[in-house]
């Protein structure tokens, strides 16, 4: 047992609590009756997820997660929710339908499927595809702004430009749709 504890790295000690908090925040999004509480829960989820990204060596993406998701996108969500000013009547009461039950069971089944993949590791039937991938040693500066930016602007320039065009279209489209008279 002590050898097991000694084998744990800082990443282990941080990952599992953060994973639990992320799952709790995500459940808060789905279970909150009022979207405003759901949005606040989602912001906390994004922060925990950003910490997990950084644990996985994605420093730049983790910071972007906080700036873009927890900052920009969630502010947009909160503005929209407050603009709509949903009251209890507009939210309606909780209804359980057959469709929702089947969908819920399906979602839980997805987690069960993922768990069964995890269990296959011990199976005698041999490893499934990804299991024996040894971790490559991370090079110096892995996940830094310089390294990611270099790859982004050298090899993925076309995708970057396509996304920038998409964002432009989205901006114009959002204004055109939300602007009353079309």
């Amino acid at each position: 047992m002590s050898s097991f504890l000694a084998s744990l790295t800082l990443e282990h000690w941080l990952f599992y609590p953060l994973a639990l908090l992320t799952i709790a925040g995500a459940l808060g999004v789905v279970l909150a009756r009022n979207p405003l509480y759901g949005a606040l829960s989602l912001i906390s989820t994004f922060f925990f997820l950003a910490a997990i990204f950084i644990l996985a060596g994605a420093h730049f993406v983790g910071i972007l997660q906080i700036i873009v998701y927890a900052g920009a996108i969630m502010v947009l969500f909160l503005m929209a929710i407050m603009l709509l000013a949903l009251d209890a009547k507009a939210l309606g009461r909780r209804r359980v339908t057959l469709f929702k039950l089947v969908g819920g069971l399906f979602s839980v089944g997805l987690v069960g499927l993922a768990l069964s993949f995890l269990g296959l590791r011990q199976g005698a039937r041999g490893p499934i595809m990804w299991i024996r991938i040894p971790y490559q040693k991370l090079p110096e500066g892995f996940g830094s702004v310089a390294a990611v930016g270099d790859l982004l602007f050298r090899e993925h320039l076309l995708q970057l430009e396509a996304v920038s065009l998409l964002l432009l279209v989205a901006i114009v489209g959002a204004v055109a749709v939300a602007k009353g008279k079309i």
């Binding site: 994605a58 873009v68 996108i73 490559q136 991370l138 892995f142 390294a147 993925h156």
Partner: peptide, 25 residues
Amino acid sequence: RVHADLSGHVTAILVMAVAAAEAAV
């Protein structure tokens, strides 16, 4: 991280941009 390949990071950034566009519209 497993493959020590930064392409996944680039993809994640692109997904984030698409998510922002999707949220706005």
